[in-house]
Design a binder for these strands. Structure first.
Lengths: 186, 186
DNA sequence: CGATACATGTAACCGGTTACATGATTTT
DNA sequence: AAAATCATGTAACCGGTTACATGTATCG
């Protein structure tokens, strides 16, 4: 019941933010519209329903200020159940599917892992990210070769961009790992 | 009427593919599930409705084979109206919004430009891509600096990934431009 | 007192996901 | 003849977009 498999990147972003400190819907909108977290819908039509869903699932809890007022102000924070489920979700090893369909969520998961669950939690995540990214790069390269002269100059260039992007991601992850290991050695 | 502003990446991919040669829904599903075009829904529930919508808009035309059969086979090709609208859409200069919200569509637009509308059509596109990507990198870097010590190691690393990604995109575009110019010089 | 920022909601719409259903053709 | 593949569709659901609606607090 309440399986965590589907968890939109908006929900994930909300969970990650309320995990740090209690936030109102408006706080979240502000963050989404003014920071590089910015590719999340800052629209109330997305955020308020998402908060309702998460509360109904029992992952976050809302404290109402200004009780009785016509304009209630709701501060949401992560529940212990939410924390458990969030951890389960972000700790999952990176899959090929994540890489192809949910790239945006990966960086979110990384920051949540580090900030909420501790530096150590990021290391297996980065390992699986590196592994899957390299696998995917190899698959794309094989595809380029197999294709032979079949594809156009433009198709090949676009594919190169994809390969370069995943390769850069793997390199970034390796560098991040080194920095985190250095940082936590002290 | 029939404004082209909203054009999902699935629709764009379909238009780009039928522009090259007539395709059935099944052909498209095959392409999406077996090639690196693969981050498009290969599900019939996405593709057949999308084909219907595009035909209703008059952008593609379906020729029915096996007429009268209970299992008709429909080959779709781009209409002249569709070609005009597609060209208008892919030739638009790249905006910041495209970069942040529709990265996936950018490579699609690039290959369509090159394959369907000619190598020359890609050059202004790549110029605007380079310009916007560099702008965005500068904005992200300013954000990193402005933030100061406010953000965590993990937030900073995630931001670095973003910066690196956009910088790599700009470098790729510059390289692509050179290759295309060399290729077409002959 | 008017403007602006704070703050929350809702309803219509739209497109993608999932799962199911059906039939035709080719291969073994 | 069974199995696999080719091929098209549909219905329920879900979440995000857009646009609208409402009210509060603060500042000039």
């Amino acid at each position: 019941m309440s399986s965590a498999s589907h968890l939109s990147s908006l929900s994930l972003a909300i969970l990650g933010l309320v995990a740090r400190s209690a936030k109102t819907g408006y706080d979240l909108r502000k963050l989404f519209s003014t920071t590089p977290m910015g590719h999340f819908s800052a629209s109330p039509g997305a955020i308020y329903p998402a908060l309702e869903r998460l509360e109904k699932q029992g992952w976050i809890r809302g404290r109402i200020e200004n009780k009785g007022s016509l304009r209630p102000r709701r501060q949401y924070c992560l529940s212990s159940k939410g924390r458990t489920e969030l951890e389960r979700h972000v700790r999952k090893p990176v899959t090929r599917e994540d890489l192809v369909w949910h790239v945006d969520a990966l960086m979110l998961r990384f920051t949540i892992l580090g900030d909420v669950f501790g530096a150590d939690a990021t290391l297996p995540f980065l390992d699986s990210l590196i592994r899957e990214a390299n696998h995917h790069v190899r698959w794309l390269e094989e595809f380029t070769d197999g294709e032979g002269g079949e594809s156009s100059l433009f198709g090949r260039l676009a594919l190169d961009q994809g390969i370069g992007g995943y390769a850069a991601l793997a390199r970034w992850a390796a560098k991040a790992k080194r920095e985190i290991e250095n940082e936590t050695k002290s």
